[in-house]
């Protein structure tokens, strides 16, 4: 099944066209990375797919047009991890992760055993279970990022839209994150995550979507997308592309001229 589909989606922010007729589909079982330079429109695409900003064109979630879904139905179909790691109050990590259960609970309903199980599992996956009683505002940047990712995991949705989830994590936790996202895909869910670390994306994602100036310029396997031509044209860089331990290794080396 298609988890989400964008059909010629155009987005204008403050009158400036940021996405120009982008079409993209994500199916179950896929962990795709959305890559592209700063300002390419990655965050805008993720926000539009989650229905958080007005967009022209067709957007559907879980097979239904976005406009026809209730806010709760949307929240049960797709979790969204924002790039800003905002936590306004010093609530505990456990409370924070528990917010992921919001769309699954009625207004006056207490947390069920299922809710608690999802929260526990999410905290363990992101290695924040031992921080459960700590105020979220007193965590380090990387710890807070992991707690917020756990929040999105606790939402237990078929689709996860994550805006730079790996930013600020140490290498071990970056790998943990990639493993978790790959597991989600293996379970038949779908993940679309914007990323700047091309090496990480190339190694763990089955699909890369390359965005450049509001248009998708390449979409396919890491090998097909991370070509020297694409890297030079879109990023203006030259990179070493090799293979190690059965996966692609990408290491940017230098800027190319003409940028």
């Amino acid at each position: 099944m298609t988890l989400f589909a964008l059909d010629r989606v155009t987005v204008r922010l403050d009158g400036r066209e940021v996405l120009h007729g982008v079409s993209l589909e994500l199916r179950e079982g896929s962990f795709a990375a959305l890559i592209g330079p700063n300002g390419a429109g990655k965050s805008t695409l993720l926000r539009a797919a989650a229905g958080l900003i007005p967009a022209e064109g067709g957007i559907s979630l879980a097979g239904a047009p976005l406009a026809r879904l209730s806010s709760t139905a949307r929240a049960r179909a797709a979790a969204f991890l924002a790039q800003e790691r905002e936590v306004a109050w010093p609530v505990t990590v456990k409370t924070l992760v528990g917010l992921g259960r919001f769309p699954h609970r009625g207004a006056m309903q207490p947390a069920t055993a299922e809710d608690r199980a999802h929260v526990e599992r999410a905290m363990e996956r992101m290695d924040v279970a031992r921080l459960r009683a700590r105020p979220a505002t007193e965590l380090s940047g990387g710890e807070r990022a992991r707690a917020l990712i756990a929040r999105a995991l606790a939402q237990d949705t078929p689709l996860l839209l994550a805006d730079e989830p790996a930013a600020g994590l140490d290498p071990a936790h970056q790998i943990t994150l990639m493993e978790v996202f790959a597991e989600l895909a293996a379970d038949g869910r779908g993940v679309l995550a914007s990323m700047h670390d091309l090496g990480l994306a190339a190694r763990w994602c089955d699909r890369l979507v390359l965005l450049h100036e509001g248009r998708i310029v390449a979409d396919g396997t890491p090998e097909a997308v991370l070509t020297p031509e694409n890297l030079a044209r879109v990023y203006g860089i030259e990179a070493h592309i090799g293979r190690a331990n059965g996966g692609l290794v990408v290491q940017p080396l230098s800027r190319t001229t003409g940028r």
Partner: peptide, 11 residues
């Protein structure tokens, strides 16, 4: 508490 965007995405 998690920001307006995240709150909206939670329904």
């Amino acid at each position: 508490a998690l920001g307006e965007e995240t709150a909206a995405s939670l329904g």
